[in-house]
Computed example of a mutant assay.
Amino acid sequence: MLKIKWYVESLWALVWVLGINKNFKVDEPVGDDLIQMVPDVRKTQNFTTLKAKTLILNEKEIYQQADFYYRVHWYCVDTRLKGGKLQ
């Protein structure tokens, strides 16, 4: 089950990078509207609508967000390994 969660979170990040999802924040869960943002491949929907909505963010913005998430993740892991509590 854990793998499914990471797939969903990865897809959430991808639609942010593509400029479709404007609400990608560390303290908020994956939005309930994610399913409407991507084509349903089981129904063989094409990607024309997705391509039309796509506006890839610039590299600096992507890098800064990725760096921030890695730092938050490392803080959580480091705190857990040291037996501390998250603040």
Rank of each mutant, 00 (worst) to 15 (best):
Y63T: 09
K60E: 15
T48G: 05
R80H: 14
E59I: 02
L55N: 13
T79K: 07
V77P: 01
A52M: 03
A66C: 14
Q65K: 15
H73L: 14
F68A: 05
I56P: 11
T54I: 07
H73T: 15
Q65A: 02
D78N: 15
N46C: 09
G83I: 13
Y70D: 13
K43M: 15
A52V: 01
N58M: 00
Y70F: 10
T79L: 02
L81M: 12
T49M: 08
K53I: 00
R80A: 15
F47A: 13
L81P: 00
V72A: 12
Y63V: 03
R71S: 10
C76H: 05
T54K: 02
H73N: 13
C76F: 03
K82Y: 10
C76P: 00
G84Y: 04
E59V: 01
G84W: 06
L50S: 06
W74I: 06
K51V: 11
Y75D: 09
T48R: 13
L81D: 07
K82M: 13
E59A: 12
K53P: 00
Q64N: 14
Y63Q: 07
E61T: 12
A52K: 15
E61F: 00
G84K: 07
L50E: 06
T79S: 06
Y63L: 11
G84D: 04
F47R: 09
Q45L: 11
Q65I: 02
G84S: 04
T44M: 13
Y70N: 10
E61A: 02
Q65Y: 00
Y75F: 14
G84H: 03
T49Q: 10
N46K: 11
K60P: 03
C76T: 09
G83Y: 08
Q64C: 10
R80I: 07
K51Q: 12
F68G: 02
K60L: 09
I56T: 04
E61W: 00
Q45S: 08
L55S: 12
